[in-house]
């Protein structure tokens, strides 16, 4: 096999393996995460729950409380900003919510945190559930891009090779 063809095949297989892994990771990445004060957490005022890793997948936010609350999902930079100066720049905002289910899509991979505002003059029970589904979009795009680019490059090199062969063939 020619070296150039081999190179293209190797890159194609790399992209194909990444595609397979993207599919396999739908089961190996976490599906559900829950946050709340069921086990003795704060029941009033601003509450920031422990940060967590989120991958660029679709997810559903399920907020249930026995009072009207505000819920914010912050990315890593916004969480640091909030902790440092109290500035709020949330990636997703849900205001005046008692119960609600929202479908969202995370665009970047990294650390996120959930910030909630529970009414200051009451004891509020809250539970926020994040349910993740679908594939990791960045891996999917990367693998498809590798496969597509490689296929196009391989096609072009085959065409060029064929053209050169035709030119060299005596008529």
């Amino acid at each position: 096999m020619k070296r150039s063809s081999r190179f293209f095949v190797a890159i194609f297989l790399l992209g194909f393996s990444l595609l397979i892994v993207t599919g396999m990771r739908t089961n190996s990445a976490p599906h559900i995460m829950s946050f709340g004060n069921e086990e003795g957490g704060a029941t009033a005022g601003w509450v920031m729950y422990p940060d967590f890793l989120m991958f660029p997948r679709d997810f559903r936010v399920d907020i249930r409380a026995n009072n009207t609350v505000d819920v914010y999902i912050l990315d890593e930079v916004a969480a640091r900003q909030w902790n440092a100066s109290g500035t709020l720049d949330a990636a997703w905002t849900y205001k005046d919510i008692k119960q609600g289910v929202f479908n969202e899509h995370a665009y970047s991979r990294g650390a996120y945190a959930i910030l909630a505002y529970l009414p200051a003059n009451a004891t509020t029970a809250i539970k926020i559930t994040l349910t993740f589904f679908s594939v990791e979009k960045d891996l999917l795009v990367a693998s498809l891009a590798i496969i597509a680019t490689d296929s196009i490059a391989m096609g072009i090199s085959l065409l060029i090779g064929q053209k050169n062969k035709n030119i060299q063939k005596p008529k």
């Binding site: 190797a10 297989l13 790399l14 194909f16 393996s17 990444l18 397979i20 892994v21 396999m24 990771r25 089961n27 190996s28 990445a29 976490p30 995460m33 422990p50 940060d51 967590f52 890793l53 890593e76 990294g110 650390a111």
Partner: peptide
């Protein structure tokens, strides 16, 4: 070798979701 490496190294379960 490339296929096996990619499939075995990148597919294991995520056991820890805390970034730290």
């Amino acid at each position: 070798i490339i296929v096996i490496a990619v499939c075995t190294v990148l597919s294991p379960t995520i056991i820890e979701t805390s970034p730290a």
